[in-house]
Simulated assay, not measured.
Amino acid sequence: MAAELTVLALALILQGVQFVLYAVPANRELGPGYTMSARDREPSRSLSDRTSRLGRAMDNHFEGLILFTGAVVLVTVSGQANGFTALCAWIYLIARIAYIPAYALGWRPWRSFIWMAGFAATFAMIVSTLF
C-alpha cells in the first residue's frame, strides 16, 4: 500500500481517537441524560474549556480530513505518489497529532502554526500533482 494511503488510514484512526478524547469527558460533564437524548435543547450545564477545545479540535480534523483525503486520492489514483508526497502525508499526520494537545491546552500561537504545517503539507501534495 502506498505510504499516503497508510497515513490516511492512520489519520482516520486518529479521528476515532479524537472522538473518544472528546466524548468521554463530554459525557461526564453533561451526563448521559443529555448526551443520550435527541438534544432538542441546549444542555443545562456547560462543557469545560478543555473539553470544548477537544470538540473543536475534533471538528477541525473532520474538516482537514476532507482535503487530505482528496489529496491522497489524487496522488494515488494519478500514480504520482513519491517520496515528496509521502513526506507531506507524514507531516500532515504529525501536525494533526500535535494539534490535539496544542488546542486542548490553549497553546497560542503554536496551535495555529501546527495547523498551518498540516494544511501546507496537504496543499503541497495537491499542487505537486500538477507538475
Rank of each mutant, 00 (worst) to 15 (best):
M1L: 10
M1S: 13
A3L: 13
E4N: 03
L5V: 15
L5R: 09
V7Q: 07
L8D: 11
L8I: 10
A9S: 10
A9R: 07
L10M: 11
A11Q: 05
L14F: 04
L14G: 09
L14K: 08
Q15V: 11
V17G: 05
V20T: 10
V20A: 07
L21V: 09
L21P: 01
L21S: 04
L21R: 05
L21M: 09
A23G: 02
A23K: 00
V24T: 01
V24R: 00
P25M: 00
P25N: 00
A26W: 00
P32Q: 13
Y34C: 00
S37Q: 04
A38I: 07
A38H: 12
A38W: 07
R39L: 08
D40L: 07
R41H: 13
P43V: 13
S44K: 11
R45L: 15
S48Q: 03
S48F: 01
R50I: 14
T51L: 00
T51A: 04
S52P: 02
R53G: 08
R53D: 05
L54D: 01
G55W: 00
R56V: 13
A57K: 00
N60F: 05
H61I: 11
E63S: 06
G64R: 08
L65S: 01
I66L: 14
L67R: 01
L67I: 15
L67T: 10
G70A: 09
G70Q: 05
A71V: 07
A71E: 02
A71G: 05
L74G: 02
L74H: 01
L74V: 07
V75A: 02
V75H: 02
V75E: 06
T76D: 08
T76F: 05
V77H: 06
V77E: 06
S78P: 02
G79S: 04
G83K: 03
T85V: 09
L87W: 05
C88S: 06
A89C: 02
W90E: 08
I91S: 09
I91A: 10
L93T: 10
R96L: 08
I97M: 03
A98L: 12
A98I: 09
A98E: 01
Y99N: 06
I100W: 03
A102M: 05
A102W: 03
Y103A: 12
A104S: 10
L105R: 14
L105G: 12
P109L: 14
W110M: 15
R111P: 05
F113C: 15
F113P: 13
I114W: 06
I114H: 08
M116H: 15
A117K: 10
A117D: 14
G118A: 15
G118Y: 11
G118W: 12
F119C: 14
A121V: 12
T122W: 08
T122S: 14
F123S: 15
A124I: 14
V127Y: 05
V127C: 07
S128V: 11
T129K: 05
L130T: 14
F131Y: 12
